Simulated assay, not measured.
Amino acid sequence: MSALLSALYNPRDVVAQAKILAPGAGFVMVLAMAAQFLSNHYGAPVMLMAILLGIPFHFLSEHENIGPGVGFAAKGMLRIGVALLGLRVSVDMVRQIGWGFVLVIGVCVAMTILASVLLSRFVGKDRAFGFLTGGSVAICGASAAMAISSILPDRDTAERDLSFTVISVTAFSTLAMIVYPIIAEGLGLDVHMTGLFLGGTIHDVAQVVGAGYSVSEETGDVATVVKLIRVTMLAPVVLIGALVMRRQVASSGKRPPLLPGFVAAFLVLAALNSFHLVPQMVTEVTSTLSRALLVTAVAAVGMKTSIAKLADVGGTAIAMIAVQTVALAAMVLVPLLYGLV
């Protein structure tokens, strides 16, 4: 990514740099398109398909011609995709749902992440793993996992942990898409409250949409708005995480930026969208582009993942994500059932 940005200052180097990145990036794009095809035609979660299609091609990520493009897709495309998510959120969404429930969501996100960091010590994992899994469960699944991983310090298990998180969270999100509407009906929640529950608990946007509109159109609309509010919280969480990481690695001399560039871009685009300065047609195009970039980045992460190393994560880590998922659902349900919002 840095090499590409440097090349932009010298136009004559752009073509040369593009030739280096093209083989790997092109291959990852093909995997992403295959994942999208499977999702469109068979209803499979696109993020899960992308990472599973990428894993068998791990050997290519170490090839001198393919590796650079795969690395660019895993980091550069990811950051661009996350930045463009800013055009999907606005202050109007908060007004539509109400500040009371937004506060509840904010507290649930914070508690989930903090509890995950603490819990990680008891399952033999480091705090970075707890932050990664907790943030992905609390905010927006695979997209959050990708964004958070980009600010974590370099670790031998970084790529393994990221792939494990994307696979596990997507699987739990798919299960929640099926089970949570049944739970909401069993608890007697009306269509509006069901939308609040689904949007406040299911991990990935696609599964929120699937679950919400399976109940009713109103439920789907409410659930989608609540989910996008959770997406908005990605920026402050990543910013706070970057600040903490800077303090922890201060002695190493290599500190992450105070405000990651893609987070700053996310905030700027969200502000522009809040003031209605971006045409609807542009937001629709960038939304599609953002999703395509994120799917491509996930496929690249899959290519960089070793199956042997992935198996080393252990069952306790799966149990940890299960606990996070159940705890988030409980924290959102309590104020809904007792009329606190």
Results as ranks from 00 to 15, higher is better:
173 S>I: 00
132 L>D: 07
151 I>G: 06
270 A>D: 09
72 F>Y: 15
341 V>Q: 03
227 K>W: 05
79 R>C: 04
237 V>M: 03
114 L>W: 08
335 P>M: 02
183 I>D: 11
67 G>S: 15
11 P>V: 12
250 A>Y: 05
310 L>G: 13
141 G>E: 01
10 N>D: 14
65 N>T: 14
244 V>C: 08
118 L>E: 09
334 V>F: 08
119 L>F: 11
188 G>Q: 09
200 G>M: 05
154 D>S: 13
25 A>I: 03
308 A>M: 09
139 I>N: 01
211 A>Q: 08
35 A>D: 12
297 A>K: 14
31 L>N: 11
47 M>G: 03
70 V>I: 07
42 Y>P: 08
112 T>R: 07
59 F>I: 04
283 T>A: 04
4 L>I: 10
42 Y>K: 10
321 I>G: 06
76 G>C: 10
273 N>D: 02
278 V>H: 11
97 I>P: 03
231 V>G: 07
65 N>W: 08
189 L>S: 07
222 V>T: 13
21 L>K: 04
26 G>C: 12
30 V>A: 15
67 G>Y: 08
254 K>E: 14
104 V>R: 01
253 G>L: 13
61 S>R: 07
303 M>H: 09
297 A>C: 15
338 Y>M: 06
175 L>A: 13
28 V>T: 15
65 N>F: 10
278 V>N: 06
86 G>P: 08
119 L>Y: 10
60 L>F: 15
80 I>L: 14
333 L>I: 05
79 R>P: 11
154 D>V: 11
113 I>G: 01
284 E>V: 14
326 V>P: 01
127 R>A: 05
249 V>G: 02
119 L>A: 12
161 D>A: 07
162 L>G: 09
223 A>Y: 13
341 V>S: 05
311 A>L: 14
81 G>S: 13
193 M>F: 08
80 I>A: 14
184 A>W: 11
212 G>L: 02
334 V>G: 01
151 I>H: 09
314 G>S: 08
3 A>Q: 11
325 T>C: 01
310 L>R: 15
320 M>E: 10
135 G>I: 00
250 A>N: 12
34 A>S: 06
82 V>A: 12
286 T>M: 09
243 L>H: 09
54 G>P: 06
317 A>T: 15
290 S>M: 12
285 V>M: 12
10 N>V: 06
77 M>L: 15
55 I>R: 10
185 E>C: 04
234 L>R: 09
119 L>T: 02
91 V>Q: 01
176 A>K: 02
3 A>I: 00
272 L>V: 00
219 T>S: 15
158 A>T: 07
87 L>I: 14
38 L>N: 02
113 I>M: 05
